[in-house]
Lab assay of single mutants.
Amino acid sequence: QVNIAPGSLDKALNQYAAHSGFTLSVDASLTRGKQSNGLHGDYDVESGLQQLLDGSGLQVKPLGNNSWTLEP
């Protein structure tokens, strides 16, 4: 069960990665100043990332080996 409060997208993504045990490689300029609506409930990694990114204009991309990145 994930419980991440709304706020900074950077912070939300870092909390989610730490909670879910995956690696997220992101260029900080992509997420700077963006906000997230947070995340509450049970999600697989990709669904949770998509939910956190909702409205940010960013997309999640798998890199393999439980690693992910973001792209515009």
Rank of each mutant, 00 (worst) to 15 (best):
Q1Y: 15
V2L: 09
V2C: 11
N3Q: 10
N3T: 11
I4V: 05
I4C: 06
G7M: 12
G7Y: 00
G7W: 00
S8I: 06
S8Y: 07
S8C: 14
S8E: 10
S8Q: 09
L9G: 02
L9Q: 01
D10H: 12
D10Y: 13
D10L: 14
D10M: 13
K11S: 13
K11L: 12
A12L: 08
A12T: 07
L13K: 02
L13I: 07
N14E: 15
N14W: 13
N14Q: 15
N14H: 13
N14G: 10
N14T: 13
Q15W: 09
Y16P: 01
A17R: 05
A17E: 02
A18M: 12
A18R: 10
A18K: 13
A18G: 07
A18L: 12
H19F: 13
H19S: 10
S20R: 13
G21A: 01
G21S: 05
G21K: 07
F22G: 06
F22V: 11
F22E: 05
F22T: 05
F22N: 06
F22P: 08
F22W: 00
T23I: 13
T23W: 09
T23E: 11
T23R: 06
L24T: 06
L24F: 10
L24H: 05
L24I: 14
A28T: 11
A28W: 13
A28E: 13
A28C: 14
S29C: 15
S29E: 14
S29Q: 10
S29I: 10
L30V: 07
T31L: 14
T31W: 01
T31N: 02
T31I: 14
R32G: 07
R32M: 12
R32C: 14
R32E: 13
K34Q: 06
K34H: 08
K34Y: 07
K34P: 04
Q35T: 13
Q35A: 08
Q35W: 15
S36G: 02
N37V: 09
N37R: 13
N37C: 15
N37F: 10
N37I: 09
N37W: 08
N37T: 08
L39D: 02
L39Q: 02
H40E: 09
H40L: 11
D42H: 14
D42K: 13
D42Y: 15
Y43S: 01
D44W: 04
D44I: 03
D44Y: 04
D44Q: 07
D44G: 08
E46F: 14
L49T: 00
L49F: 08
Q50R: 15
Q50N: 12
Q51E: 09
Q51H: 11
L52Q: 01
L52H: 00
L52F: 00
L52V: 03
L52C: 03
L52Y: 00
D54P: 05
D54R: 15
D54E: 15
G55T: 02
S56T: 15
S56R: 00
S56D: 01
S56L: 09
S56F: 07
G57E: 05
G57I: 04
G57A: 04
G57D: 06
L58D: 00
L58K: 01
Q59M: 13
Q59Y: 11
Q59I: 14
Q59K: 14
V60W: 08
V60A: 15
K61W: 07
P62H: 14
P62V: 09
P62F: 15
L63P: 00
L63Y: 06
L63D: 07
L63M: 11
G64F: 04
G64E: 06
N65S: 08
N65Y: 08
N65E: 10
N65K: 11
N65M: 08
N66S: 06
S67K: 11
W68N: 04
W68D: 05
T69A: 12
T69G: 11
T69Q: 11
L70R: 03
L70W: 02
L70P: 04
L70I: 15
L70M: 05
P72S: 10
P72F: 10
